[in-house]
Each structure stands twice: as C-alpha cells, then as structure tokens.
Amino acid sequence: MKVIFLKDVKGKGKKGEIKNVADGYANNFLFKQGLAIEATPANLKAL
C-alpha cells in the first residue's frame, strides 16, 4: 500500500515521502499513530 508519511518514522520514511509499505503495517501502526495517510489521488493532490 502506498502511504504519505506525515512524520519521520525511523527506518521507514521521512515526512512528505511517498512509499510502499505492507498493508498490515500501514493499517495497524502508521494510520493509528497518525504517522501516515493512504496515498489516494485526492491526498496526493492535496500535497
């Protein structure tokens, strides 16, 4: 799943980066902690 990092995550990505991560990691950690959002066309356009 492509995500947009909202904050720096050690070993994974920096704020503003768009990266592919495992679905479970994105859903269970990044999204719940507010560290990233899904890289949907609408979210990409908002950058």
Rank of each mutant, 00 (worst) to 15 (best):
K2V: 02
K2L: 06
K2F: 04
K2D: 05
V3R: 00
V3C: 06
V3Q: 00
V3L: 05
I4C: 09
I4D: 00
I4P: 00
F5A: 02
F5I: 01
F5Y: 05
F5S: 02
L6K: 06
L6H: 03
L6R: 05
L6P: 01
L6E: 04
K7W: 04
D8N: 12
D8T: 09
D8Q: 06
D8P: 03
D8A: 08
V9H: 01
V9R: 04
K10Q: 11
K10I: 15
K10F: 14
G11V: 02
G11E: 14
G11F: 12
K12I: 15
K12G: 12
K12E: 12
G13S: 06
G13R: 01
G13W: 11
G13T: 02
K14N: 12
K14L: 15
K14R: 12
K15Y: 09
K15Q: 05
E17L: 04
I18N: 03
I18P: 01
I18W: 06
I18L: 08
I18A: 04
K19W: 06
K19A: 14
K19D: 04
K19H: 00
N20M: 13
N20R: 07
N20C: 13
V21C: 10
V21W: 02
V21E: 03
A22L: 10
A22K: 10
A22F: 05
A22H: 08
A22G: 13
A22D: 14
A22I: 15
D23N: 13
D23C: 08
D23Q: 05
G24Y: 08
G24C: 08
G24N: 12
G24A: 13
Y25F: 04
Y25T: 07
A26S: 06
A26I: 03
N27S: 13
N27A: 10
N27F: 08
N27H: 03
N27G: 10
N27W: 10
N28S: 13
N28V: 06
N28R: 08
N28Y: 12
F29I: 13
L30H: 01
L30P: 00
L30T: 01
L30I: 02
L30R: 00
L30W: 02
F31M: 06
F31Q: 03
K32Y: 04
K32W: 05
K32I: 07
Q33H: 01
G34M: 10
G34A: 10
L35Y: 03
L35K: 06
L35W: 11
L35G: 04
L35T: 04
T40N: 13
T40P: 07
T40K: 09
T40S: 11
P41E: 15
P41M: 03
P41F: 07
P41K: 07
P41V: 09
P41H: 02
P41L: 04
N43C: 06
N43W: 02
N43M: 07
N43R: 10
L44V: 12
L44S: 09
K45P: 09
K45D: 06
K45R: 08
A46F: 14
A46W: 06
A46T: 11
A46L: 12
